[in-house]
Design a binder for these strands. Structure first.
Lengths: 231, 231
DNA sequence: GAAGTATTGTGTATTATTCACACGAAGTCA
DNA sequence: TGACTTCGTGTGAATAATACACAATACTTC
C-alpha cells in the first residue's frame, strides 16, 4: 500500500545508545549491532529503526531495542534529535536518539536473542560506526557523565544488590576519575537512599563486603521536596 | 506535486519557546502567536511550523521564528522532541521543540513584522495553549532554570551593557528565588567574565550603577579547561 | 593453626565554600 | 541642605569538601 503526501517528508527513526556496566571488568560498555543491510552493510551501528505511525517515540525505541538486541524493561530516556540533511545517504532521515542503561544480569540475554550480531564494546574502544552514530554515541556519553553526578541513575547499571565498591568503580569508570573511598562512602550513605541488606558479598581470600540495594521509593519522596542527589 | 512512500510517515515540525526578559518589569516573558488557521484557530500557540526536506532542524527553527515573529540571530537550542500519537488532531505530527533567548532590544521588532499576531506574556500568566504546547512550554522553562545555574546563558536575555542588579533580577525572576546582593556580586565577579565599562547607568534620583558586558571569548577559553560556571 | 594476602570498613584534621547580615556612597529632587 | 533611593562593599559563622592510614575479616598455603 502506498501513502501520498502534498510535500516530501523525512523518514523518522529512533537510535539507542545502550550502556552496560561490567562489575567484573569495571568498565563501561556500549551495545552495538552489526548491520546486515546496505548502506554501511557489515559496519557496526547503534540499534534502532523506523518509527511506526501509530506508536510513540518512546514505544518505537523500546520496540526496536527488543527486536534487535532482546533487551527490554530498561531505563530509557530521550537524548537528542539528529536532523542534518545528509546524515543518511539514501534520503532525508531524522533520528530521535535515546540512551538506555541496563544491569549486568541482562547482558547475557542481549547478544543471544536476535539473529543480527550484537556485541558489547568498552566505551574507550569502539569501532568506526555507521551514519553519524559516532556523534550520537559521544552525545550520549557526555549526557550520562553529566547525569550521573546529579541524579541517581547509576543504580540502573548495577545488579539489584551491589557493594559500595562496585558502585564506586561504576562512578570511576563513567566519569574517568579516581575517587577517595572514604569520602565516596560517606557521601552516598549520607543521602540515606541505600539500604544495607543482611547478605554479604564474598569472593576471593579477603573480607566480604556488605551488600546494599537502592531505594527508589524514598528517592521519589525526597525529589518532591526539592532534594538533589550530587556526587 | 505528490510524494509517495511505501509506509505512512509522520509530519515533522519545529516549535520554539522564545524567552525574553524585560529589565523594566523584571519579569521573564514568553512569545506566543495567535493561530490564524484551524485547528485551534484563534488560540495562542508557540511559533513553529513544518520542517522542509532540504533544511536541518536548526535551520527550520530559525526560519519559522523569523517568518512568524521577525526575530533572528538569537540564542537557540534544541529542547526535546514530542511524539505522542495524537498530539495533533489531524494526523501524526512529531515536533522537535527548541527554546530561544532574546535580548530586550530585539523585543519591539518581534510583534510588528509579521501579520499574525505575536505577543509577549509573563511566564507566570500565560493563556491556554494549542496542542501540547503547554507541556512544551513547561519543559522549556524547567530547562532554562536548570541551565541558568550552570551555564552563562543569562546574558543572552540582557542588553549588551547591563548592571549587576539587572543580572540579579534576571536570575531571581527565572529561578523564582531571592538572592543576596553581596553574595551574588561576589560570585559572578569571581569568575572574571564580566568586563566593567567606563559608562554608568543613571536613572532616577540615586547613585548610578556600573555597567558591565559579558566576555564570551574568555568564557570559551575557560570552558576548554573544564571550567564550570555555577550560580 | 600460623603466616601471608587481599579487600573491606572506618575517623579526623585542614581547607574551601556557602551563607547571613548592615551601612556609607552617590546621585536626584524639593 | 535635607530627604530619598539605589549602588556598592566586608566579615564571621556554619557547612561542605578534601586529604589521608590502619585495623578487621575472610581465604589460602605451608
Amino acid at each position: 500500500m502506498k501513502h501520498t503526501y502534498e510535500y516530501p517528508r523525512a523518514a523518522l527513526t529512533v537510535d539507542c545508545v545502550v550502556f552496560g556496566f561490567d562489575s567484573g571488568q569495571a568498565e563501561l560498555q556500549v551495545l552495538l549491532i552489526r548491520r546486515g543491510l546496505a548502506p554501511f552493510k557489515d559496519h557496526w551501528a547503534l540499534p534502532g529503526g523506523f518509527v511506526r505511525v501509530e506508536e510513540t517515540l518512546d514505544d518505537a525505541a523500546r520496540r526496536e531495542l527488543e527486536e534487535e538486541t532482546g533487551l527490554k524493561d530498561l531505563f530509557l530516556e530521550q537524548l537528542y534529535t539528529f536532523g542534518t540533511v545528509h546524515r543518511d545517504p539514501r534520503e532525508r532521515v531524522v533520528s530521535v536518539a535515546y540512551y538506555a542503561l541496563t544491569k549486568p544480569a541482562d547482558h547475557t540475554t542481549a547478544a543471544s536473542t536476535d539473529a543480527a550480531e550484537a556485541r558489547w564494546f568498552p566505551v574507550t574502544d569502539i569501532p568506526p560506526l555507521a551514519f553519524d552514530h559516532a556523534e550520537i554515541f559521544a552525545t550520549a556519553l557526555a549526557r550520562l557523565r553529566g547525569k550521573l553526578t546529579y541524579q541517581p541513575v547509576g543504580f540502573e547499571l548495577l545488579p539489584p544488590k551491589f557493594t559500595l565498591t562496585q558502585l564506586q568503580r561504576l562512578y570511576e569508570s563513567v566519569l574517568g576519575t579516581e575517587i577517595d573511598k572514604r569520602n565516596f562512602r560517606k557521601k552516598v550513605l549520607s543521602y540515606d537512599l541505600l539500604i544495607p541488606l543482611k547478605e554479604q558479598h564474598r569472593e576471593g581470600p579477603h573480607r566480604p563486603a556488605q551488600l546494599f540495594r537502592f531505594d527508589p521509593m524514598k528517592y521519589e519522596r525526597l525529589k518532591k521536596k526539592g532534594f538533589l542527589f550530587e556526587i
